[in-house]
Amino acid sequence: MRVATLVLTLLLGMSAAHATIDIYPLESDADRQRFQVLTKELRCPKCQNQNIADSNAPIAQDMRDEVHRLLVDGNTDEQIVDAMIARFGEFVTYRPVFDRRTALLWLTPVLVLLIGMGVVIGLVVRSRAQASLPPRTLSLEERQRAEDLLK
C-alpha cells in the first residue's frame, strides 16, 4: 500500500514537472533545471508562503513569465533574482542575502546550536568533576548525629 502511494505521488509529481516545462519551452535540460530551481526559490508576494512555481495567482504567473523571458534572454540566475528583488523587495526570495537586517535570521540557528553545545559541555564537565572527587565519608560527629536522628 505504502509503495503504491509512493509511486502514485512520484507519478503525479512528474506530470506536474512536465506541465511546467511544456508551458515554458526552453532549449536545454540545464535551462529547464534552472527554471525549476528559480521558480521554487522565488516567493509569491500575493499568496505568501507559496513559491511562484506552485501558485496560481496572476502575479505568480507574471513572475514565471518574466523569469522565463529573462532566462531565454541569457541572464544569470543572480541577475534574474535581482530583477525580482528590485520590483518586489527582498521578500520574494526564500534565500535572503546576508546583511545587517537579516543577520539575526541567519545567525539564530548557529547561536542556538552554540548555546546548546555550551549547556551540554557544562553538564558533562560538572558531572565528571563530581565523579572524580573521592567518595566523602562522614566524620565522627556527623556519624554520631546521624545515629541520634535514626534512633
Binding site: 508576494p45 500575493k46 502575479i59 507574471d62 518574466e66 520590483r87 518586489f88 523587495g89
Partner: peptide
Amino acid sequence: DGRLGFDLGVYG
C-alpha cells in the same frame, strides 16, 4: 498587459 504594474511591484 500589466507591464508597468509589474515593474512597479504591484501585487494586488
